[in-house]
């Protein structure tokens, strides 16, 4: 008889993670496509403002990569859902796995995707400005905020954290839908239903929740908030998918 192979959790998670980096390449190509689409939308400017008196009018057209970040957040949300779907999950189950390693390697993959998504989102905001400068009538440029090095570091990290937060949310949504397929319809209906119901009573759910993260000006507190939330979302996903049957 063949001697039994002994494996440990960390080793399997590592192998699965590396496997995902190689086989989920489509996740990243879709990121490139989406960010380029977002760039196209942003080239026309994200707003304008100005003023003047008698004989002059100052007009400032604003350009920022905000839309790229929003699209990146959408991308990670969708991919958070996608990697819980049958096709992705069962790729793991053709090799050595259990539900825990499957989830852990997915979370590592989401972290990597967030890292790549966050950094490229900020970088393509810069690409946007370079394209503006070279391919469109070059008005003199005003940089609007002085951003110090530490603020750049915070900004990039915050972008990564935002992306990870929404990736975790997608992962939970995906896990719920896998648990109970009808949630694919119930969840969005319930979400928008509650949203509008509350809005009619002047309770702005999205704004309220949004402010909790978007209006937080302390980087440390922001980090704590995002990591805690993501952690809760992921632990719930892990718990509910731990009895998920595969190859149904």
């Amino acid at each position: 008889m063949m001697s039994l192979v002994n494996v440990n959790l960390g080793n399997v998670v590592k192998k699965q993670y590396l496997f995902k980096l190689r086989s989920y390449v489509g996740v990243f190509t879709s990121l490139v496509v989406l960010q380029l689409i977002a760039l196209l939308f942003s080239l026309g400017g994200t707003g304008g403002g100005g003023g003047g008196s008698g004989n002059f009018h100052v007009m400032i057209n604003y350009y920022s990569g905000d839309v790229v970040i929003i699209f990146t957040i959408l991308w990670v949300f969708i991919n958070g859902i996608l990697i819980t779907t049958k096709a992705y999950r069962e790729d793991d189950f053709s090799f050595v796995t259990n539900r825990l390693t499957n989830n852990l390697s997915n979370i590592l993959f989401l972290l990597t995707a967030s890292l790549v998504g966050g950094v490229t989102a900020i970088a393509s905001g810069i690409l946007l400005k370079v394209i503006r400068y070279f391919f469109f009538n070059a008005e003199p440029i005003i940089t609007t905020f002085s951003i110090s090095t530490i603020e750049i570091i915070y900004g990039v990290l915050a972008t990564i954290l935002y992306v990870f937060l929404f990736g975790s949310l997608g992962y939970l949504v995906g896990s719920l839908v896998q648990l109970y397929k009808k949630l694919a319809i119930i969840l969005p209906v319930a979400f928008f239903g509650i949203l509008f119901a509350l809005a009619s009573r002047d309770i702005m759910l999205v704004e309220g929740v949004g402010e909790f993260y978007f209006k937080e000006t302390s980087f440390l507190l922001f980090t704590v908030k995002v990591i805690t939330t993501s952690g809760i979302l992921l632990i719930v996903s892990l718990t509910i998918s731990n009895r998920q049957e595969v190859r149904l």
Binding site: I60, I69, E151, F222
Partner: peptide, 15 residues
């Protein structure tokens, strides 16, 4: 008088 205002992304100005 026209200018291009290069606005840093919201995550860069949040803090």
């Amino acid at each position: 008088i026209e200018y291009s205002g290069y606005v840093p992304e919201f995550t860069l100005t949040q803090f």
